[in-house]
Design a protein around this nucleic acid. Structure first.
Lengths: 155, 155
DNA sequence: GAAAACCCTGTAGCCGCTCCAGGGTCAAGC
DNA sequence: GCTTGACCCTGGAGCGGCTACAGGGTTTTC
């Protein structure tokens, strides 16, 4: 099948499929005489796997590692446990900071009644005051803000 | 004060401060004779405000709008309510999908006992099966994946 | 035989930074 | 006077995970 068909079957945009190919997640398919990519059932399966992992918010680099296990079924899979564990830890950390965030925002929301002018806006006042560190719970537990990644690469 | 001092005072990297200036969030400061940026107390206050909003995960574009209100204290602040409301809605949507995600991952984690080989790995099997759509709760409520932004701009 | 739908490659854009190259400046210590 | 190190400058590239577009070619449908 061609890229559009594959995309519809897996619920993925064609450009994204080409991106996965470039990123080394999908093997380059055969080409028809006109140069069009020609996919088979195996590609659909692999693509569905990738999408499912992405739905679990697993980064592409880890999906690549998972696919390695799929490709080498006799490898030891102890790492898979660790990988899932790490992903779970990431998600839980993010959840925790987001719950704190929600509280902050919910508290803010009720501080401004309609019809005001910015100078008297409770929300704005609260934000400015909080920025000074008064009564501010969220500086302590800020959201992870990109959370690591990328140490010691390049060059 | 110079950029390093400001950065230390606000807990922000100097490069980030220059980035905020380029992005139009911090007004360009005066310059010393040697070309060094020279900041005053107002800059520190504004920077602290920005960081506080970022801690609330408010996107820079919205912080820019909030700063407009700070700068024009006589403007109507009805929009601020809507802005906070929108941010809260974003956070809650993301929370919801992340809770589903956590469940999925936690369920996965117990599927593989150590010492296995990839071909028999419960996690891998589960992922592959789920990708086929069998017993998969997470396709229905996938994480927001970049969540919008960017419609109808450029050109 | 023209229009619409599809495909190709390659490149640039989004966010919010972070890092680097390749310079200049300035204070302290020898 | 000279080195060392800390700081500062500009401009540009990089991250992840796509998405969009320019500028072409092909295939299908009317």
């Amino acid at each position: 099948m061609r890229i559009g068909e594959l995309g519809r079957a897996a619920g993925v945009d064609g450009e994204t499929i080409r991106y996965y190919e470039k990123a080394g997640l999908l093997p380059p398919p055969a080409r028809a005489l006109n140069g069009y990519r020609a996919y088979g059932a195996a590609h659909l399966e692999r693509l569905a796997f990738i999408r499912h992992c992405r739905a679990l918010d697993v980064p592409l680099a880890e999906i690549r590692r998972l696919l390695d296990f799929v490709d080498r079924p006799d490898a030891d899979c102890g790492d898979i446990n660790r990988l899932i564990e790490a992903q779970l830890a990431r998600v839980r950390a993010r959840l925790k900071s987001m719950r704190a965030l929600e509280k902050q925002l919910a508290a803010l929301r009720s501080r401004c009644e309609a019809g005001h002018v910015a100078a008297e806006c409770g929300i704005l006042h609260e934000l400015v005051a909080a920025a000074h560190g008064e009564a501010c719970a969220c500086h302590a537990s800020a959201p992870d803000s990109a959370a690591g990644g990328r140490e010691a690469k390049r060059r």
